[in-house]
Computed example of a mutant assay.
Amino acid sequence: MKFGSHVSIRNGYLSAAKHAFSMNASAFQYFPKNPRSLSAKNFNKEDAALCSEYCKVHSMTSVSHSPYPTSLTPQDSFKRNQVVKSLLNDLEISEACGSLGTVVHFGKLLDVHEPLASYQLMIDVLDEVLNEWTGSAKILLENMAGKPGSIGTTLEELTQVRNLCGDSEKIGFCLDTCHAFASGLWNGGNWQELEKKGRELGFWDNLGVIHLNNSNYDTGSGKDRHANIFGQGYIREEQFSQFMRADILKKVPFILETPKDVVSHEEEILALYKKWGD
């Protein structure tokens, strides 16, 4: 099992990897650049290469997370151009750091009267990015936390968008446990059904990372409010155990995006290894 958390790149990519390792993490996530901007970053390639080498030496897995303004359903051509250039920059940084890829949130519904238009726009934007991208780092599509029936909350949507893209082999998935719980995709008691559905759709074969988060609200709430894993949220330990004991997830890294004001990530990672580590 690989457990880790989101870490800061304030002091560079190598420093981020070293910080994660100091917390006994075997995986970590980072923003490749300013998380509130789509501006391309002229990054330090030597620092990124040192990060990549450090992760190889210490058997660490990393992923990046695209900045908050990133949208696969941009509302105009100017924003679309920004998003495409930003994602290519994110992928370039991820590749240089030796990361699996870049986590990107599923797109939003732009018109309730024409829902298919939003899916088609997503596919067009992904195709535009991946037609130009030649590296091995992937875009990792993340499930959304909306109420049941909202866009981006089902395995069918994630896999179908991937299947309809021209460069589908360059796309993987990120499963957020809080998002899945909030949307009702995973209600804490339907793991067997979810596992079966994922197998049928090929979802698990392309899962790159799991965002391991508890939820401050009950399943079906549609609210994306993360809580700590142990004793803080609505998802119980025995329900998380269904994920941890699943053979199909043994090689998938689990990344914490939980609050740090009550329990530090270092303490939480230690507790995860104690509870579910190999």
Results as ranks from 00 to 15, higher is better:
171 I>T: 10
17 A>Q: 06
145 A>L: 07
241 S>F: 14
220 G>H: 03
223 K>R: 15
205 D>Y: 07
261 D>Q: 08
100 L>T: 00
50 L>S: 15
177 T>C: 13
210 I>F: 11
9 I>L: 06
44 N>S: 14
231 G>E: 14
34 N>C: 04
83 V>N: 01
101 G>M: 05
77 S>H: 11
240 F>G: 01
148 P>M: 02
221 S>N: 10
208 G>S: 11
95 E>H: 00
28 F>Q: 11
277 G>Y: 04
77 S>I: 13
155 L>P: 08
142 E>K: 04
20 A>R: 05
259 P>R: 01
93 I>P: 00
66 S>I: 01
146 G>F: 09
157 E>M: 00
234 Y>W: 13
44 N>M: 13
217 Y>D: 14
57 V>G: 11
227 A>D: 09
182 A>Q: 08
94 S>M: 05
250 K>T: 10
28 F>H: 09
131 N>T: 14
243 F>S: 04
201 L>A: 05
119 Y>K: 01
248 I>L: 15
64 S>T: 06
23 M>Y: 07
88 L>G: 06
170 K>H: 09
101 G>L: 01
35 P>C: 02
216 N>T: 14
93 I>L: 03
148 P>V: 03
252 V>F: 04
140 L>V: 01
23 M>F: 07
40 A>K: 15
172 G>I: 06
118 S>H: 00
13 Y>M: 14
84 V>K: 08
238 E>L: 10
193 E>C: 11
73 T>G: 03
40 A>W: 12
275 K>S: 14
168 S>T: 05
97 C>A: 09
109 L>C: 05
22 S>P: 11
36 R>G: 03
105 H>Q: 02
226 H>R: 01
207 L>I: 09
231 G>R: 12
87 L>V: 03
123 I>M: 04
171 I>H: 13
19 H>Q: 15
57 V>Y: 10
274 K>E: 13
32 P>A: 04
117 A>W: 11
82 Q>R: 12
151 I>P: 04
219 T>A: 13
102 T>N: 00
22 S>F: 08
11 N>L: 12
130 L>Q: 01
274 K>P: 12
236 R>D: 13
195 E>N: 12
165 C>D: 06
83 V>H: 00
44 N>T: 12
144 M>N: 07
100 L>C: 02
274 K>L: 12
247 D>K: 14
135 G>K: 06
140 L>H: 02
62 S>E: 08
167 D>K: 15
144 M>D: 07
60 M>Q: 11
100 L>F: 09
129 V>A: 02
113 H>E: 13
138 K>N: 08
142 E>S: 06
4 G>I: 03
118 S>C: 03
68 Y>S: 01
257 E>A: 08
255 I>Y: 01
69 P>M: 01
6 H>K: 03
7 V>M: 07
7 V>P: 06
192 Q>L: 10
12 G>N: 11
187 N>T: 14
214 N>I: 03
24 N>T: 09
179 H>D: 10
88 L>W: 02
54 Y>H: 10
160 Q>S: 15
5 S>C: 09
164 L>G: 10
6 H>T: 02
195 E>T: 07
30 Y>C: 04
98 G>D: 08
241 S>V: 12
263 V>I: 10
79 K>G: 10
137 A>N: 05
65 H>G: 01
170 K>F: 08
143 N>K: 07
191 W>H: 11
